[in-house]
């Protein structure tokens, strides 16, 4: 970074201090319109999830067969009371989507948190101790990576039993190798640097070296991967829900809603269209954010 500042044209102010890291980050990040759009969508989804109790017009689980399969308000027979229509047992689709946002965000965050926590520790251990420990951990991760991710998740859930909790565990395990590899690679680059040697010479123990010295310097790739990981987690958990292996009805999880609505595809387009659209938009937003974060945080890609 220092070289870049020095090479900067002297026109501005030769003595100017480098901008605050956060401000610099925002400069790179905001130049990417897609990333900003992704961030805006994510903030909106988070707000919707937090305010679900206030903004949802109906109880997401309240059934009323007299109004089953009402179309959205702009179609004949629809009413503004149920803006996006109702499902086969008369639940308001908009309200279910709003509460579904809570579930999807929860899934994304919990899955990635589990994966990062375990993955980082495994990666640090592999990078620090090398030898047999490393071979064992990395071979295991290679095996997980070899298997198609959803197949492995399906097998795990099939064995543990269907349900949201088991689905989240399965997806967390499936995305684990990415974090282990990242953390290990970062550790190996960092440990050869002088500051680590200095810390070691001044008597820092391995645990301190791992968590206090090296870990803070490999957060950037982990943050990028976390954002991309949330989109994978939401997508895979929804796929499991769709297959009947994830969240179980009547939970308003988006994938589960699609599974419930599947047989009505020929009669009511709205019951299948909106939940999937919600998944697509949310996943797209996290992917956009991840791409933007990578461009802004990864110094190797900076131009």
């Amino acid at each position: 970074m220092t070289t870049e500042t020095m090479e900067a044209p002297a026109v501005a102010a030769p003595t100017a201090t480098p901008p605050h890291p956060l401000r610099e980050f925002w400069g790179y990040f905001s130049a990417n319109h897609g990333a900003v759009a992704g961030l805006v969508i994510i903030v909106a989804v988070v707000l919707i999830a937090l305010l679900a109790d206030v903004i949802a017009p109906h109880d997401p689980n309240l059934t009323n067969t007299t109004i089953a399969l009402k179309p959205p308000f702009w179609q004949e027979g629809g009413s503004i009371a149920y803006p996006l229509g109702t499902d086969p047992i008369g639940r308001d689709i908009l309200s279910r989507l709003i509460y579904g946002a809570q579930l999807s965000l929860l899934i994304g965050i919990v899955v990635v948190a589990i994966s990062i926590a375990i993955g980082t520790v495994l990666g640090l251990v592999a990078g620090f101790f090398r030898g047999l420990t490393e071979i064992f951990i990395m071979r295991l991760m290679d095996i997980i990576l070899t298997l198609p991710s959803l197949l492995l998740a399906i097998v795990i859930v099939a064995v543990l039993g269907p349900g949201l909790m088991n689905a989240m565990l399965a997806v967390a395990l499936v995305i684990l190798p990415h974090y282990v590899r990242l953390a290990r690679a970062a550790v190996i680059t960092e440990t050869s640097k002088d500051y680590v040697t200095a810390a070691r010479v001044s008597g820092a123990g391995t645990t301190r070296l791992m968590f206090k010295e090296v870990l803070p310097n490999c957060t950037a790739p982990l943050i990028v991967q976390a954002s991309l990981g949330i989109s994978t987690a939401i997508l895979d958990a929804a796929a499991l829900g769709f297959l009947g292996l994830g969240a179980q009805p009547p939970s308003p999880e988006w994938g589960t809603m699609l599974a419930d609505a599947r047989e009505f595809v020929l009669r009511a387009w709205w019951v299948v269209t909106f939940p999937g659209l919600a998944i697509l938009i949310t996943v797209l937003a996290f992917n956009l954010l991840g791409d933007g974060l990578r461009d802004a945080l990864d110094p190797k890609l900076k131009r």
Partner: peptide, 16 residues
């Protein structure tokens, strides 16, 4: 990018 983020189980239903 949209294709990459696509929940294909929904995409199938929409195409149907």
């Amino acid at each position: 990018l949209a294709g990459y983020s696509m929940p294909i189980f929904w995409w199938g239903l929409i195409l149907i």
